[in-house]
C-alpha cells in the first residue's frame, strides 16, 4: 500500500482515538485502560502472519513465542475487562432498573 494512504489512516485514527476517550469520568479509567490494552492484543494478527511464513526453526520459535504472548494479551485483556465491568451490573435497585434492558 502506498505510504500516503497509510499516513492517512494513521492521522485519522489518531483523531478518532483522541475523540472517543475525551471526557470520560475517572470511574471508568481502569476498564477503559484495560479495554484499550485488550485491543492492542490484535498484534496476534501480525504474529500469526509472521509464524505462517516462517521458514527456518529459529524464526518459527520466535514467531510462536510472539503468538503466545499476543494471545495472552488479546484473550486475557477482553476477559479481564469484562469481569471488571460485570461488577457494574446488578447494583442497587434504581440503577439496575434503569439498565434493565442492557444485557
Amino acid at each position: 500500500m502506498e505510504a500516503i494512504t497509510l499516513l492517512t489512516f494513521f492521522v485519522l485514527a489518531v483523531f478518532i482515538g483522541f475523540e472517543v476517550v475525551s471526557k470520560v469520568s475517572s470511574t471508568l479509567h481502569t476498564p477503559l485502560m484495560s479495554g484499550a490494552n485488550a485491543i492492542h492484543g490484535i498484534i496476534l494478527v501480525g504474529a500469526v502472519i509472521v509464524a505462517g511464513s516462517a521458514d527456518d526453526p529459529l524464526t518459527l520459535v520466535i514467531a510462536l513465542i510472539a503468538v503466545l504472548m499476543a494471545t495472552i494479551n488479546l484473550v486475557g485483556g477482553f476477559v479481564v475487562t469484562d469481569r471488571m465491568l460485570e461488577m457494574f451490573r446488578g447494583r442497587g435497585s434504581a440503577p439496575a432498573a434503569r439498565e434493565g434492558s442492557d444485557a
Binding site: M1, L6, F9, F10, A13, V14, F15, I16, G17, F18, V20, V21, S22, V24, H29, L32, M33, A36, N37, I39, H40, I42, I43, V45, G46, I49, V50
Partner: peptide
Amino acid sequence: VAASGLVLNNTLLLVAGTLVGASGSIL
C-alpha cells in the same frame, strides 16, 4: 502495534494500534 502494521502493510494493525496509542495518551 501501529508501527508493526506499517511493517506488515496491515491496515487493521495500523488503525487499532493508533487508536490505542492516541486514546491511551489522552487517558
